[in-house]
Computed example of a mutant assay.
Amino acid sequence: MQTFHPKHFAIVPAAGSGTRMASDLPKQYLPLLGQPLIRHALTTLCAAPEIDKVFVVLSVGDAQWRQYDWRALGPKLVPLFCGGATRADSVLAGLRAIAGETAASDWILVHDAARPCLAPWHIDKLIRELAHDEVGGLLAVPVADTLKRADAHRHVAATLPRDSLWQAQTPQMFRYIMLRRALEGCSAVTDEASAIEAAGLRPRLVEGDATNLKVTYPLDLHLAEWILNNREGLNR
């Protein structure tokens, strides 16, 4: 009897504006080592042998994408101009757009456009550890710092125990039909795992590392540049 092997598709929502970066240019197009920031993660995703296609979900009126030459990333890369107002809206629009070429049990890896330091071993570990998981999961790192909850005046209201707390990263990997139904049922979320949780399921945490940095503030660009320039010397 023939064994079915699910495919792996990546979705990168990139319809946002990145208002906290203090720049008129959308964050995903800010220059990083001579390339638009988003290109670094796309290069890693397109080079991953486990991933069949990489879909970038852009805003309908995106005028920046076509100003760059993406051909070197190969035929895996497919832009979709159907992004929404939020990350969840963009991911759901992307899932709907690719419905004709995905099976219900295929894996979807959603990755932040603003995480340029994604490495091949991040993808390998996520796919390997979730291959037989019924729900799926996400890369994450245990919280190392002491956490404070602030009141309305930025005074400390409480110190939170950090035991069992993890900082979510991406990619987040779930079955196509499971993720689509979860987002259709709960779109007021900031990541895919939250939608899966709202559906009553428990995503698995796959330990990543701090090099999978999300660029949120201007200083983060310098940190990302250092990581990319020194990647070969970092522990995996």
Rank of each mutant, 00 (worst) to 15 (best):
179 L>D: 00
231 R>E: 14
173 M>E: 00
122 H>C: 00
104 A>K: 10
152 A>R: 15
43 T>Y: 12
41 A>R: 03
157 A>H: 10
57 V>L: 08
172 Q>F: 05
104 A>F: 03
89 D>L: 00
28 Q>L: 11
10 A>T: 02
137 G>S: 06
150 A>H: 14
89 D>Q: 11
4 F>V: 11
48 A>S: 15
103 A>E: 14
188 A>W: 08
186 C>T: 13
187 S>K: 11
46 C>F: 08
92 L>Q: 02
170 T>F: 01
19 T>K: 15
31 P>G: 12
65 W>H: 10
146 T>M: 12
3 T>V: 13
118 L>K: 08
213 L>G: 04
37 L>E: 06
100 G>N: 11
173 M>G: 07
59 S>I: 01
26 P>I: 05
213 L>K: 10
95 L>H: 04
95 L>Q: 07
119 A>G: 01
94 G>I: 01
5 H>C: 11
168 A>D: 08
134 E>H: 10
151 D>K: 04
85 A>F: 06
7 K>Q: 14
215 V>Y: 03
208 G>F: 09
40 H>S: 10
148 K>P: 05
139 L>E: 06
36 P>V: 03
33 L>S: 11
131 A>F: 02
143 V>I: 13
3 T>W: 08
205 L>A: 13
208 G>P: 07
111 H>M: 08
37 L>P: 01
49 P>C: 08
168 A>R: 10
15 A>Y: 06
64 Q>F: 15
147 L>W: 07
141 V>L: 11
105 S>N: 14
52 D>P: 08
231 R>F: 09
9 F>L: 01
86 T>E: 05
228 L>W: 08
64 Q>M: 13
15 A>I: 03
49 P>D: 14
92 L>C: 08
70 W>H: 02
168 A>Q: 13
53 K>M: 07
40 H>F: 07
8 H>W: 02
44 T>Y: 07
132 H>Q: 15
78 V>S: 05
33 L>H: 10
114 A>E: 13
187 S>R: 15
1 M>C: 09
63 A>E: 15
60 V>C: 10
144 A>K: 15
162 R>T: 12
103 A>S: 12
165 L>A: 07
177 I>V: 13
200 G>M: 10
196 I>P: 02
131 A>Y: 07
89 D>Y: 00
3 T>I: 13
118 L>W: 04
